[in-house]
Structure formats: structure tokens, C-alpha cells
Amino acid sequence: MATTTTSPTQFAFLLRILHWLMAACLLAMLFIGVSMVTSVGNYHQLLAIHRPLGISILILALIRLVTRLMNRTPALPPTVPPSERMIMKLSEFAMYALFIALPLIGWAMLSAGNYPIVMFGSVHLPPILAPQPMLYATLRKTHTILAYALFLAFLAHMSGVLFHTWIVRDHFLSRMLPWTVRAKGRRAGEI
């Protein structure tokens, strides 16, 4: 593992921007999704946002994955015990997997359900599966379950980072803040 002296103090700028942009999109998406499926009057308008926003998230997630793999990441502070390191790695992996899987399943589900995949105006995407009713029903359920999983992962992620930042006070959040935070600013006692 890289030592603290050679590793960057923050994630790459593009990654930090993508993190917050995607956080906003995903949170909006989760709320739109859960609201749309129980709404009669707003269903159509919410769905009209849900589809293109989902594809936007897929594109952002792929850019983010490549950027993440191409850049060095800041070391975890020593306040993170090894057991927690493993959980953090697994949850990061799971969240990236969900960012990509959820829109792909949505796209596949609409394809299997024989729906046109309308983005906006006359712009639409090709189907990625042949129409198959039973598969549609399965993918539709999977889409919901994974969305709930992502929402729970988001709550756990947010709670964990805030715990480190507010209670352990190891400047955990500064690794991902969009603005530049210098290492020399991280003095003992400073929050």
C-alpha cells in the first residue's frame, strides 16, 4: 500500500466532480423512481425524466469507472482499521456495480417488455434484448430490489463518512470535497 507521503490527499478532480454530480443524479433518480411507481397522475412525467436520467447516469458511471482505474487514490487515514478497509473496498465496488447495473437493467427490462426506449423528442435507443415477457417481469423486480439496495448503500456510505468526519475527525470527507484541501491544513484538532 502506498504511504501517506507519496499518495495524493484527494481523489482526482474529475472523480470528485463526478462523485457529487452523480450523487445528485442518483438521489434524484431514486426518489423519482420510488415516487413514480406509486403515482397515477405524475407517472408519465416522472418516467419521461427517469429514462434519460438513467442513461445519463450510465454514461457518467462508465466515465467515472475509467477515471477511477486510471488515477491514484488517496490513502485511507490510519484511523480506519483493516476490517473497515475491507468493508469500504467492497461497498465501493458494490456501488460502482449498482451505478452501472441499474440503468443497464432498466434498458434491458424495457427491451424485454417490448417498449420503445424513448429518450427525448424523437431520440430513442435500440433494444438490447428481444421481447421476452417472463424475463421482463424478472428484470422489473430486480430493478426495484437493486434500487432499494443502492438507497441503503447510500445511507450507509453517508453515515460512515460523516462518522469519520464528525466523530473520528480524520478529515475523511476532504478526500472527496470538490475544492482543493491541502494536507498541511490537516492539523490535529482541526475539523
Binding site: P77, T79, I167, V168, R169, H171, A188
Partner: peptide, 13 residues
Amino acid sequence: SEANQGFGAPPPL
């Protein structure tokens, strides 16, 4: 105490 030896970790609240 180990945690506090790292950079930036302040004394416990």
C-alpha cells in the same frame, strides 16, 4: 492512541 498517531486525527471528543 494508535489512531491518534496518524496524521490529522485530533484528541477524542
